[in-house]
C-alpha cells in the first residue's frame, strides 16, 4: 500500500513536470511575441517603411533593407531552386551508383550542420575575394545558395518519394523517355513539396545575419537598377536589426524591425503549413 502511494506521487510529479515544461515552452513564445509586438508595432511608421536613413533630417528608414531582403531572396532562390531540385531528382530518379548517392546525401547533411558564421567566412574568402564580387548582394546570395541547398534538396526528395511508382511505370510503359516522364509526371506531382522547401528557405534567408554580414555588408543605399543592386553591398532586415540594436543603440527601430520579421515568419509558417496540407492530400 505504501509502495502504491509512492508510485502515485512519483507519477504525479513526472506528469506535473511534463505539463509544466510544455506550458513553459509556450509561455516563452507568448512572452517573446508579446514583448516584441508591444514595443515594435507602435514604431512601425510609414516613414520608417518608405524612406532611407537620412543623416541631414536625422531620420531612419528601412526601405533599403526591405529591398535588399527581397533582392537576396529572389536571386538566392533563382539559383538554389534548380540546383536543389536537380540534385534531389538525381538522387531519387537517376542515381544507380549507390556509393555516389550516399556521398551526396552525406555532404548534404554536413552542409546542414555547418553554422552560418562559417558560411560567412567562406563566402567572404571565395565570393568576395577570390571571385572578386566584392561585398555585394551577389556574394551574399551565392553564399546563401550553398546554405539553403540542403533544405531544398531534402524537402524535394521527400515529396519525390511520395510520387507512386505506378505513375512512373505507366509513363515509361507508354514509351516516354526518362526526362519526359520527370518533366510531365514526377515534378508536377511533387510541386507542393518543392514549394514547402522554398518557403522554408525564404524563412532562413529572412532570418540570416551572420553569413550576410561579411558577404553583403550592412549598407543602406537604394540602388537605381537591378544590376547595380546586386553589385553593391547592402544589409537585409536581420542585419539591420543587429546594427541598429548593438552598434547604434536605436532600440525603437530594432524592435520595429523585429516585429516585421516576426510577422514575416508567422506568414511563412502559415504558407508552409498550407503547402504541406496539399502535399498530404496528394498522398491520399
Amino acid at each position: 500500500m505504501k509502495h502504491g502511494t509512492k508510485r502515485k506521487i512519483k507519477s504525479g510529479i513526472l506528469k506535473g513536470l511534463v505539463y509544466f515544461c510544455a506550458a513553459f515552452t509556450v509561455s516563452i513564445l507568448v512572452a517573446l511575441l508579446g514583448y516584441i509586438f508591444v514595443r515594435g508595432i507602435p514604431n512601425i511608421t510609414w516613414q520608417l517603411l518608405s524612406t532611407k536613413p537620412s543623416a541631414i533630417r536625422d531620420t531612419i528608414g528601412i526601405l533599403p533593407n526591405i529591398l535588399n531582403t527581397l533582392y537576396i531572396i529572389l536571386l538566392t532562390l533563382l539559383i538554389a531552386l534548380p540546383l536543389g531540385v536537380g540534385a534531389a531528382v538525381y538522387l531519387t530518379e537517376y542515381a544507380k551508383n549507390k556509393t555516389f548517392a550516399r556521398i551526396v546525401e552525406f555532404t548534404t547533411e554536413t552542409l546542414a550542420g555547418i553554422p552560418s558564421i562559417i558560411y560567412g567566412l567562406v563566402g567572404m574568402l571565395f565570393f568576395v575575394k577570390v571571385l572578386k564580387f566584392g561585398t555585394s548582394l551577389l556574394s551574399g546570395s551565392l553564399t546563401l545558395v550553398i546554405m539553403i541547398l540542403p533544405t531544398i534538396i531534402r524537402t524535394t526528395q521527400e515529396s519525390l518519394k511520395t510520387v507512386p511508382a505506378s505513375y512512373r511505370e505507366g509513363a515509361l510503359g507508354l514509351g516516354a523517355t526518362k526526362w519526359h516522364m520527370i518533366r510531365t509526371i514526377v515534378l508536377p506531382s511533387s510541386i507542393s513539396g518543392i514549394v514547402t522547401g522554398c518557403i522554408l528557405s525564404v524563412g532562413r534567408i529572412v532570418g540570416e545575419s551572420a553569413a550576410l554580414l561579411f558577404t553583403a555588408g550592412s549598407a543602406t543605399i537604394i540602388a537605381d537598377g537591378l544590376i547595380s543592386a546586386y553589385t553593391k553591398g547592402g544589409g537585409t532586415l536581420s542585419v539591420a536589426l543587429y546594427i541598429y540594436a548593438s552598434e547604434r543603440a536605436e532600440f525603437d527601430v530594432a524592435f520595429a524591425i523585429a516585429a516585421i520579421l516576426l510577422i514575416m515568419v508567422f506568414i511563412l509558417n502559415l504558407l508552409a503549413k498550407l503547402a504541406a496540407k496539399k502535399l498530404n492530400r496528394g498522398k491520399e
Binding site: 536537380g86 540534385a87 555532404t107 548534404t108 554536413t110 555547418i114 567562406v122 520527370i182
Partner: peptide
C-alpha cells in the same frame, strides 16, 4: 541526346553539395 544531356545536368546538380563541402573544407 536530350536524355543524355539531362542525365548529365542532374548529375552536376548532385555534385554541387560535394563541391560545396570540399570548397568550405579547403578554404577553412
Amino acid at each position: 541526346i536530350i536524355e543524355r544531356v539531362m542525365n548529365a545536368v542532374f548529375f552536376i546538380c548532385g555534385m554541387v553539395s560535394i563541391a560545396a563541402v570540399l570548397l568550405i573544407t579547403l578554404y577553412m
